[in-house]
Nucleic acid binder design. Structure first.
Lengths: 347, 347
DNA sequence: ATCTCTTCGTGGAACGTTACACGAGGGCCG
DNA sequence: CGGCCCTCGTGTAACGTTCCACGAAGAGAT
């Protein structure tokens, strides 16, 4: 199992020598290609084990396949992405493919471009782009070179596959839940739209639109309010401050991301408001933070692991050319009710 | 800037043709090696831009260098690791190196081995192993093949460099802080020791030893208590339950990791104990969770970003052979006091 | 003018793998 | 028994880069 003793790494030639066959033969069993007898397979297998041989990925890369797939992650801090990754890992576990994450500290467009290029340059066999900030045409361009799955954006293309969540459904669940509790004045914290990326259907667009629609459905269209202060702790804080110090503070806040909801907690604490007694709060994504006892946040679960698994499976289909038509997979979210939502204070 | 039009990717030969020089010349300017005139550099540079040439990393890999460094992460969910990564990214930003993360869903030893092999097989130029669970001898073995930096474990070796924190100092800060508040009965939540990994100096060992020493220093040796329920939310919950329902519940709990502290919150909530009024709680790592308003946890900050930057720098020194002796870098932690610690309830 | 250095460009042999073309042998059919 | 098709193993030419050895040309010293 161990490189017997030599300092250098065993190559296909060493294996061929040791087994007394040609390198082509070894290559064949390696890829389990057609035209190799059981006896041959046996001998080569033994020789490989003896020498502790592992194929040299760079050399393979020169001939086309590296058995590597890359995932681009905007931020490593968003726990939802961790769920996604678990799914991807699970789907890849029993394959020969290795998974590598690229995550530039920032989600700057330029950094992401650099990372994607780094992946392509390393001949990765497929890419999973999670909520990419690079422009859509850039992604289309990349996808023409290497199989690609985009997670999160609702802009399909014949060039790549999409995995998304039915965000509208999740929003309905939240709004219905709050209305059922007796709320009427529910504000929404959203993410500012970045211009010029050509993604028309980012999740926050869908969520915003669904929020307005749901409010209208309940006859509350004129109470609908959206603050675009961003999906981050700081953004949640600023947005909540703006809302809660306004002339008509809402009785409930629906944050488009859990991470923004944590900022709302901070704002509420500073203003002396208790959650859920004085203010109801709901998040989105059901990240692990939401489940922490002191947080205890009502949130929408997107089944991240399942989305990740789907993405990986779609990608493998493409890489192995079992499918050549682009596809969109949308999964259904559900609501996880915790302690941050309650009936509004008696007026 | 764009691949002019051809479907195939530009190679060094194309550039050479277009510039009317040899491939060797192009290679030289690529690596800015010795023996290339300014005029030549200029011409080649122009040709590269025109063709949108980017070197083919796999091919480079065959000749030794891939300009890729790999980071092994036990878990992507620990926010402390995100800080580390930011540091690594920062240090690598202006270099030609790309960073890829390997993170098997689980921290199983076998998964980690597989990942490390995947990195080595892909000819990565250097490895940063963050709190690896694979056995030490395995790491030594790997480090003989490719430059390696180990982060977290205090077991130095001539084979690899180490980046650690002076955990003892951090523990002293916590214990002194609690004693100053008036606490005497302070228990410690630790991580169970995994046998057979040959790491004798994992952070939890240091922290445990320092905890006992600090207690002794304050004349509280016989009140020292350690529960090995693990660094996880669930572990913190179980450990806290055990302690708080014992015949002599402590007035303060020092959790060896923030993630375990969140479990303590849950246990306290279930038992009707308020933090910090009835129970003081301190964590370790100062992860972003600790700073969240509803959590507001006193914790020890390890300057993760700085550690990451250091690790990257050490690795580059090794890769570029500017140093050949192993080194240990230890940074100093400091205490961040928040709202989870207070004087003990009047007895 | 001749000799020696330096500087700068070129040729070409690797690196480890894959995949195509080919050929040797055996079995089956007419 | 000749011809044909299968099966299974081999030889070899790439793939894109690096780097060593070499040579040509120019500068400076004698």
């Amino acid at each position: 199992m161990r490189p017997a003793s030599s300092s250098k790494r065993a190559t296909i030639t060493d294996v061929a020598h040791s087994a007394g066959v040609s390198t082509s033969a070894v290559s064949k069993v390696l890829r389990n290609a057609y035209g190799v007898s059981p006896a041959m397979r046996e001998r080569v297998q033994t020789a490989m084990d003896e020498l502790g041989y592992r194929p040299h990925a760079a050399a393979r890369g020169m001939r086309g396949r590296t058995y590597t797939i890359g995932v681009l992650l905007a931020s490593i801090r968003n726990a939802f992405y961790a769920d996604l990754l678990d799914g991807v890992n699970a789907a890849l576990r029993d394959t020969e493919y290795a998974l590598f994450l690229g995550s530039g500290g920032s989600s700057e467009r330029e950094d992401q471009t650099r990372l994607i290029h780094a992946m392509v340059d390393r001949q990765m066999d497929g890419l999973i782009l999670i909520a990419p900030t690079v422009s859509r045409s850039e992604v289309v361009h990349i996808a023409a070179e290497v199989p690609t799955v985009v997670v999160g954006h609702h802009d399909p293309s014949p060039a790549y596959d999409c995995v998304v969540n039915q965000d509208g459904v999740g929003v309905d669940l939240v709004v219905d839940h709050l209305v059922a509790l007796g709320h009427r004045d529910m504000a929404h914290l959203s993410h500012p739209t970045v211009r010029g990326t050509q993604w028309e259907q980012r999740p926050e667009h869908h969520v915003r639109a669904a929020y307005r629609a749901a409010m209208a459905r309940h006859g509350l269209a004129d109470l609908a309010r959206v603050v675009h202060s961003g999906y981050s702790d700081e953004g949640g804080y600023r947005g909540a401050m703006e809302l809660l110090t306004s002339t008509r503070p809402p009785t409930a806040i629906f944050a488009g991301a859990d991470v923004a909801a944590t900022g709302v907690f901070r704002a509420a604490a500073e203003l002396g408001l208790r959650i859920p007694d004085d203010l109801s709060l709901a998040g989105y994504n059901n990240t692990s933070v939401a489940a922490l006892a002191p947080v205890n946040l009502t949130s929408v679960d997107q089944a991240g692991a399942m989305m990740g698994e789907t993405a990986a499976r779609l990608l493998l289909e493409r890489i192995e050319k079992r499918r050549d038509r682009a596809v969109v997979m949308a999964s259904t979210p559900h609501l996880v009710v915790r302690g941050s939502t309650a009936p509004p204070p008696a007026a």
